[in-house]
Design a binder for these strands. Structure first.
Lengths: 244, 244
DNA sequence: GCCGCTTGTTCCGCTCTGCGGAACGACGTA
DNA sequence: TACGTCGTTCCGCAGAGCGGAACAAGCGGC
């Protein structure tokens, strides 16, 4: 476990999540390093182009180089490539915000988002990570688990106090989602979203597609229509590209 | 210059640009490391979640974690934030592909791209890096340099043989662009694009906005109309948010 | 103007991290 | 069966990197 490697990445993570440039002192105490150690690592990162030091204040901030790397990685991502055209068709058809997400531990990771041309409330930014239980796409994937109760329990434990529901309620919710083929979420106030899982090679789901819209734009019949389109898209994706 | 740090980042860069998972042997010779050294670093990267090792083949590939970091970085990027709404208006108005790019050494880096709903030929992917001289946005920024001839010479040297033009021609081109307020590029066959620079605090340009479309969709009068919209957008951006 | 706080940076000696040559077992091929 | 190549493990040596301490510069309040 090369400690210099792990320390440098810890520094990069801190800088990335900080947003604005950070003072060396704050940074070194945040990652738990001696000032001199953090300083040396930062100088290395600056030399490599990953970090920029403000000329006047001396503060350090992340450059765009990490983003360059990241873009190249996600650009080649097989799931994203496979789903791209299907997402676009779906987006055109329903005219609401369409997202692609993949499981990542007990979270889901948003890979892509095609925003609605109509006004929207809120939808997860690509690259953001959210506890699976809090999203329709995540719940759609959870509903595919072999042991629903176990999956629900772990997901609930990981969601913290942000999901106010009993285990029994959640299990019932997942059972219903499995029966229906898609999950519905009303966790974010004022927005309703539907998610559908896409099976992977391993048996567990490889991804999910979700559609979200302001509640007032979704009547009962809209819901049925959108759900049909969502399910059709997932089925078509599976048929043409096979298991992801 | 912590060598472990620089080596680990070299490995990550190699994995990111590789696209598909790579064998340890190829990787170690590519970055010029002993197999055992590369292996140890890879193990730490796996433990930290930046690298995934395929279970069956043993090959190594980049995970999405770097992309998560990168997304967080670019999300906070001041230029991108400032320009976002202006880009959208412009995109709606002209209906063609709109890009935002920033200078990065002798290259330009594409920050964002709003693709045209109509069919398009090719446009640079966000996160990609291109020699400044080969794009309209890059040339628009070059045209703002104090010493045009010097800037052109350096840009030309860096563009390699992909730009077939003499220094004199390029200088004339840049002079014209400066006079006009925007640059035109027909480097990619079949697509024409216009770029406009946005001045920064330092005096040198902070960013550029470009519009690109298939040649057959751009008549003489279209060109004038699009150019007007582009210039108006850049002016409005500058007026409302000030120098970037 | 002076003092005291905090900043980023530099120095240097000790130590333990990380290095890499070599050997290993597993697998696939000739 | 013999060979090539794969990823992995081992271990002794060396120097990379660690961090406490001292430094100069900048800032705000008496």
């Amino acid at each position: 476990m090369d400690q210099a490697v792990s320390r440098s990445l810890a520094i990069l993570e801190a800088l990335a999540s900080a947003g604005a440039p950070v003072r060396l002192s704050r940074l070194s105490e945040q990652v738990g390093l001696q000032k001199s150690t953090a300083h040396r690592i930062l100088q290395t990162l600056v030399a490599l182009g990953y970090v920029i030091q403000e000329a006047e204040t001396g503060r350090y901030g992340a450059s765009l180089k990490l983003w360059e790397l990241g873009s190249a990685i996600v650009f080649e991502h097989p799931v994203k490539r496979a789903a791209a055209s299907f997402l676009q068709s779906l987006h055109r058809e329903v005219g609401e915000t369409v997202s692609l997400l993949v499981p990542s531990g007990e979270d889901v990771l948003y890979l892509e988002r095609l925003v609605s041309p109509r006004p929207t409330r809120f939808s997860a930014r690509p690259g953001s990570r959210v506890p699976a239980l809090l999203t329709s796409g995540g719940r759609a994937m959870l509903a595919e688990a072999a042991d629903l109760r176990d999956a629900a329990a772990r997901a609930l434990a990981h969601a913290g106090d942000r999901r106010e529901a009993t285990l029994a309620e959640i299990v019932r919710d997942l059972e219903e989602a499995r029966r229906r083929g898609y999950a519905i979420s009303r966790d974010t106030p004022g927005v309703v979203s539907m998610g559908c899982a896409i099976p992977g090679r391993t048996g567990s789901p490889a991804a999910a597609i979700s559609i979200s819209a302001p509640v007032e734009r979704v009547t009962q019949e809209d819901e049925a229509r959108v759900a049909t389109a969502l399910l059709a898209t997932c089925a078509a994706l599976q048929d043409t590209v096979g298991l992801l």
